[in-house]
Computed example of a mutant assay.
Amino acid sequence: MVDVPHGHDAAESMTAPPKAACAESAAQASPGPLQSELADTRDKLLRSLAEQQNIRQQMQRQREEAVKFAASQLAGDLVDTLDNLRRAIESVPPDAADHASIGPLLKGVQNTESNLLATLARHGMQRIHPLGAAFDPHVHHAIIQRPDETAADGTVVEVLQPGYTLHDRVLRPAMVGVAVRGKRESGPAAG
């Protein structure tokens, strides 16, 4: 025989949810120390994962930059060789360039310079051609100021030594002469 509760107790037991369900809903309604700790731990985990991702991305950028600029020391050393080739070419007088013994030698030096520049260009190195450009202290080094009424103030009017970049990073700034308007007293160069 089944014992059935009578009266008011019977109605409560029929409509009341089980005690476990009450405890769960009470825990959701007011977060206890366990929920707070769980949320805190979850927040720490997400922050840690984000930090790890940032570190991975930073290491990837550093690795790519290291590969990109690994040859910068070699490229910087080759700048002197390019300067010497250019000096050799410019040292030949124009009338001697057609001479039977000098002409082929000059042509060989010009071809060597051209091939070296092309090879370096394939690897990201470029010669800076500033003549006629506005003076830029990031890529030019002003050695002299020259009065020039035909050029705008601050325009590069003379290149004393070419500059070079490697992947848009300056290896050596171009040494230049900069135009100034009117009479200029001699003094220290700009830049």
Rank of each mutant, 00 (worst) to 15 (best):
A133P: 00
D153G: 01
R184T: 09
L34W: 02
H123A: 05
L117N: 06
Q126E: 09
S48P: 00
T81P: 00
D3I: 12
E12R: 14
R47M: 11
A96Q: 12
L78G: 03
S25A: 11
A71D: 15
A23G: 02
L46I: 12
S72R: 14
I89G: 01
V157K: 05
D168A: 13
R87Q: 13
H138A: 14
S72L: 08
E12Y: 14
V176C: 02
Q52P: 00
F135I: 07
R169L: 10
P137W: 05
A118F: 03
A27W: 02
L131F: 01
K19N: 09
P173A: 06
D40E: 15
G163V: 07
A26E: 11
A21Q: 06
L46D: 13
A96E: 13
A75E: 06
A39T: 09
L38Y: 09
G154C: 08
D77M: 13
L171D: 02
P147D: 08
R63M: 14
P188S: 06
L85G: 00
A11R: 14
V92S: 02
P5W: 12
K68W: 06
V79A: 07
I102R: 04
L160P: 00
R127I: 13
H6Q: 14
D83E: 10
L117P: 01
R56W: 06
M59V: 05
A16T: 12
V67T: 14
G177S: 15
H141K: 13
T119R: 10
T81L: 15
K107L: 06
P33I: 08
Q28N: 07
L34T: 05
A97K: 15
P104H: 09
G187P: 02
V139N: 00
R127H: 01
R42G: 05
A88G: 04
K107M: 08
L34N: 03
E185T: 09
E158H: 06
V180T: 08
T81Q: 08
L34A: 10
A50G: 10
V67P: 01
S72Q: 15
A121K: 13
P18Q: 10
L74F: 13
G132A: 05
G154E: 11
R56V: 09
S30N: 10
L38K: 10
T165P: 01
A96Y: 02
L120S: 00
M125Y: 02
L160H: 02
D95Y: 07
R172W: 03
Q53V: 10
P93K: 14
E158K: 07
I128F: 02
V92Q: 03
A190M: 13
T15P: 00
S48T: 13
P104M: 10
K68C: 13
G187Q: 04
A20R: 14
G177H: 08
Q145Y: 00
S114V: 03
Q60I: 09
A133M: 08
Q52Y: 12
S91Y: 08
V4P: 03
G7Q: 04
P18N: 12
A151H: 05
D3P: 02
G132V: 08
P94L: 11
R181V: 05
Q53T: 11
A133C: 05
D136A: 05
Q52L: 14
P31M: 09
A66T: 10
Q57S: 11
S91W: 06
T119N: 11
A179V: 00
A16W: 04
L116Y: 03
A97W: 03
M1C: 02
E185Q: 12
V176N: 01
L131G: 01
G177V: 14
Q145H: 04
R87E: 12
P147H: 05
V176I: 03
A70N: 11
L116Q: 01
I128N: 01
E113L: 14
